[in-house]
Simulated scan of single mutants.
Amino acid sequence: MMKVVIVAILALATTLVSAYDPSPLQGFYVAINYTDSAVFVNGKFCKDPATFIANDFFFPKLNIPSNRTANKLGSSVNLVNVDKFSGLNTLGISLAHIDFAPYGLNPPHTHPRGTELLVVIEGTLLVGFVTSNPNKLFTKVLNKGDVFVFPIGLIHFQFNIGETNALAFSGLSSQNPGLITITNIVFRSNPPINPVVLIKAFQLDKSVVDYLQKQF
């Protein structure tokens, strides 16, 4: 009887470990943007492996600062996913370079298909994420060299609380993690969400909802 119990526990443990992220069923395949290839993997047509070259697995100059932080948010994100870097296809990873002007914000957003691991290269960031039930905030001030993880699918943010520019890099556990920015999906949808829905959901006056929809 004891042996049966032990076997059952081991089987359950193995199931829990492998249930979310099983080993790939295929090797790596470099994505291409045309359909002459007959191989279709992870939503991408793939090159013939015999034609792979080193540049398929190379992305240049991700260290160059962005000059696009002069916006209302004061931030700029350069996401390097499979659409930009074809060698990521089937590998389950992507990368982002995030620049912040002083007091710049990467606003509350979520990646529906990827966990994010952020490392601060320069500056000081206030970061956090909110769990779904209950809505508990986990937040931390990060300095140069600090690392923080945002679990898959949870709303999170990064805010430069310093008076100088800040820089961070993020690794994401998907070749195409997706991005849902909360303010955009609520106030910038096309066609717009009926204002009555937003008035009731956010307990706001119609004038405020109208203003927010115009802003976005």
Score class of each variant (00 low, 15 high):
190 N>H: 12
180 I>T: 14
174 S>H: 13
207 S>T: 15
171 G>K: 06
212 L>M: 09
198 L>E: 02
198 L>S: 01
177 P>I: 04
186 V>H: 09
200 K>H: 07
189 S>Q: 05
178 G>F: 03
170 S>P: 04
173 S>M: 06
186 V>Q: 06
210 D>H: 03
173 S>E: 07
181 T>L: 15
208 V>R: 01
203 Q>W: 00
205 D>T: 08
206 K>N: 05
174 S>M: 04
201 A>C: 09
180 I>N: 12
201 A>F: 02
187 F>E: 00
189 S>L: 10
194 N>V: 04
207 S>F: 00
183 T>F: 10
202 F>N: 05
204 L>P: 08
207 S>C: 13
209 V>Q: 00
209 V>F: 00
205 D>V: 07
171 G>S: 11
192 P>R: 10
175 Q>E: 15
199 I>Q: 11
173 S>I: 12
190 N>G: 00
205 D>Y: 08
171 G>A: 05
213 Q>G: 01
196 V>G: 10
180 I>C: 12
201 A>G: 08
184 N>I: 09
214 K>P: 12
181 T>H: 05
200 K>N: 12
176 N>Q: 07
186 V>R: 05
177 P>A: 04
208 V>D: 06
197 V>A: 03
184 N>D: 14
185 I>Y: 12
174 S>A: 13
178 G>W: 03
182 I>M: 13
207 S>Q: 07
187 F>W: 00
202 F>Q: 07
212 L>Q: 00
180 I>L: 13
176 N>V: 12
198 L>R: 07
175 Q>K: 14
191 P>D: 09
205 D>W: 03
187 F>V: 04
184 N>Y: 13
170 S>A: 15
211 Y>C: 15
198 L>K: 00
183 T>W: 11
182 I>F: 08
210 D>K: 13
214 K>D: 07
172 L>G: 03
181 T>S: 09
211 Y>V: 07
178 G>S: 04
208 V>M: 07
196 V>T: 10
182 I>L: 11
197 V>S: 01
210 D>G: 06
179 L>H: 07
189 S>W: 12
210 D>A: 04
185 I>P: 05
183 T>A: 15
196 V>D: 03
186 V>P: 10
181 T>C: 10
197 V>M: 03
194 N>M: 03
188 R>T: 07
180 I>A: 11
198 L>D: 00
176 N>F: 15
199 I>V: 15
185 I>H: 06
170 S>V: 06
203 Q>F: 09
172 L>P: 01
175 Q>L: 14
190 N>V: 13
189 S>H: 06
184 N>R: 14
186 V>K: 00
211 Y>D: 13
187 F>H: 01
178 G>A: 03
188 R>Y: 14
190 N>D: 08
197 V>Q: 02
208 V>P: 06
172 L>T: 02
195 P>Q: 11
209 V>S: 05
170 S>T: 12
204 L>Y: 08
199 I>P: 02
177 P>H: 02
202 F>K: 03
199 I>S: 02
184 N>T: 08
203 Q>M: 03
210 D>Q: 09
201 A>S: 15
211 Y>P: 06
196 V>M: 09
180 I>R: 06
200 K>I: 07
189 S>G: 11
193 I>R: 09
208 V>H: 05
179 L>M: 12
192 P>G: 02
